[in-house]
Nucleic acid binder design. Structure first.
Lengths: 348, 348
DNA sequence: TTGTATGCGTTATCAT
DNA sequence: ATGATAACGCATACAA
């Protein structure tokens, strides 16, 4: 069919093994023959067959990506495009390819991971999010396959290599930011409690309130999906309270946009009537009306570091680092302001 | 290392070739031995090695995806997440895996495509967008590799299999929609003219105006990148005109959000002062303030059909269909209203 | 420094 | 209906 190593060998009057060594730039081959072989390769338009190489080397130079289910609305979150950018750039630098799992349901995805691993299609995997009691993580641990998690593993935190933000600390900080603006009725709208990130952020929120001596109000804590429908319901429930919050900590920009949308319909002004701070700082955060104050969690780096550390792990050039913390930064825009109500109270 | 076909063969007291036939469910193997072999596979925990199979079969069951450059801001458009969903679901149904190109620049991506193709890593490719004078399309045609383009090829439209909307017609329709609302000063804000979709939409816009007997105003046609910064500049330029438009056709939701954002800053009300209609109808379209009237181009189907037709093409079960048109639909929300100014004029 | 031979795990072509 | 055996294209241990 196409040009193989043997064709090049014949053309250059050497053995196939010599051609192979030239490809690997083996120092034991003389510069003369290297040059001759390389010319032959150019001449014939030779390109190495990755499949054959993978079989012989027992390594594919492919990284498997475990995506959320395609039916999952989370799949549409710009978070994933951004994390993909980071993974892509890092993988490209090290000449690794990226292969995605496909599948709608959790079971389909799990089966896909098994195929990838047992079928020896990939050298390692990156899990794009971390669930509570993650079946896939459990499996990969048992199989002893190199893998890296984006987010914090629910179990075996000390053993599983992961790239994460300090979400506990970040949420503490934003909550304290709102406290400094004189808010004391602060609600938390988080995503599914099945995601570890939600738990971490909730804990950070609670810690800040606790340190400020504010009693936790269960009605102020709402868990909905990270996306639009969730946002709408969450808001309507909160506003119905006798003592509605004056500030919201929302765990995701997209969800925060949904909240903004609903507040606009209800003629509630942001930030005049209610302040909002959200997370992720994706492109659309600054396109909200008003532009959202959001925690930049450096999504690109999350992806970049994940692929980078996975590759280090695969080639075990070193004892793998178990935890990489990517820094975050509060980006202040126009969705928060001082709580005047409390100001008046304190002036009395 | 791991369990191979030979181990199963020994365990079941048959030849490796027999095991292979059982895997393929070859009818010439007796049910008895099939059962015995399958039990042996379960027992030993056998999983076929895809790499070895690929080498022997000369087919990988992998589809290559040609993404925009990761440095490209277009990469962040929710369009791609959605198209990925469609591709993923379709590929999964046919047991194909998805592999992405990586790379920042056009050249890096091209090199990646060559690696994929010559390295025999993939059985075919899907191009996620269509550029004017697309180098990659040219290359794939010459290599005679199965591929499908999402969007309209700039050249060889009759020969290259592609999945597209009727963007010309769709843009005609939305422009006529605005005309019916009594707008006659309608501007067009499109993306890069390097993308075929931009050209198609521009032509549709022009056609509608022409049929309505409205003279084209060059100052009303602006091309900027599909994203935010572009949107801002475009708007400011338009509003500076002595006779500013009362309606905008914006070629992308994300860009339209940027436009909304800027208009809000300038205290220009939508739709009272200016009407906006945009394209794609991604999730965030309904989260604009006001929610955007947008053309739903059925992005999921674009991806789904692309993978489906590529796979048909690969297995050439039939003479490949050259063109698949995915239907579009105008989703009316709250960003457009009747042009009162012209109403008054006509009432005089 | 280079060549020979074998293996990587399958599939497929002959045989039997 | 099943078993040997030769590809598939490359890497590598062992020779020379």
């Amino acid at each position: 069919m196409s040009i193989t190593i043997k064709d090049v060998a014949k053309f250059a009057n050497v053995a196939p093994s010599t051609v192979s060594r030239v490809i690997a730039d083996n120092p034991r081959i003389s510069e003369k023959t290297k040059k001759r072989v390389r010319e032959a390769m150019k001449e014939l338009g030779y390109h190495p067959n990755f499949i054959a190489r993978s079989l012989a080397r027992q390594s594919t130079k492919v990284i498997g990506l475990v995506m959320p289910g395609s039916a999952d609305i989370i799949f549409q979150n710009p978070f994933f495009s951004n994390v993909l950018r980071g993974l892509s750039e890092s993988a490209h630098e090290k000449n690794y390819a990226l292969q995605m799992t496909t599948g709608k349901t959790e079971d389909e995805i799990f089966e896909g991971v098994v195929q990838m691993v047992q079928g020896r299609r990939v050298d390692g995997l990156v899990l794009l999010n971390s669930h509570v009691d993650d079946k896939i993580m459990e499996y990969l641990r048992k199989q002893n396959v190199p893998f890296v998690v984006i987010g914090k593993p629910f179990k075996y935190v000390e053993e599983i290599t992961h790239v994460d933000n300090d979400n506990f600390q970040a949420t503490r900080e934003v909550t304290e930011y709102l406290l400094q603006l004189n808010h004391d009725r602060i609600a938390f709208i988080g995503g599914s409690l099945d995601l570890v990130v939600t738990i971490e952020r909730l804990l950070g929120y609670e810690k800040a309130l606790q340190l400020a001596g504010i009693e936790l109000n269960n009605q102020y804590v709402i868990h909905e999906e990270f996306l639009r429908e969730g946002g709408r319901e969450a808001v309507s429930e909160l506003l119905k309270l006798s003592d509605p919050p004056t500030a919201l900590v929302v765990a995701d920009d997209l969800m925060a946009l949904g909240v903004l949308n609903m507040l606009a319909e209800l003629n509630v002004s942001v930030p005049e009537d209610i302040s909002i701070v959200s997370f992720n700082n994706v492109l659309i955060a600054e396109m909200g009306n008003p532009p959202l104050t959001s925690v930049d969690i450096n999504i690109f780096s999350l992806g970049y570091e994940a692929a980078k550390n996975l590759i280090l792990h695969i080639n075990n050039t070193q004892e793998p680092i178990k935890r990489v913390i990517v820094p975050h930064k509060l980006i202040i825009r126009s969705s928060c302001m001082k709580n005047i109500e409390n100001d008046l109270v304190s002036l009395e």
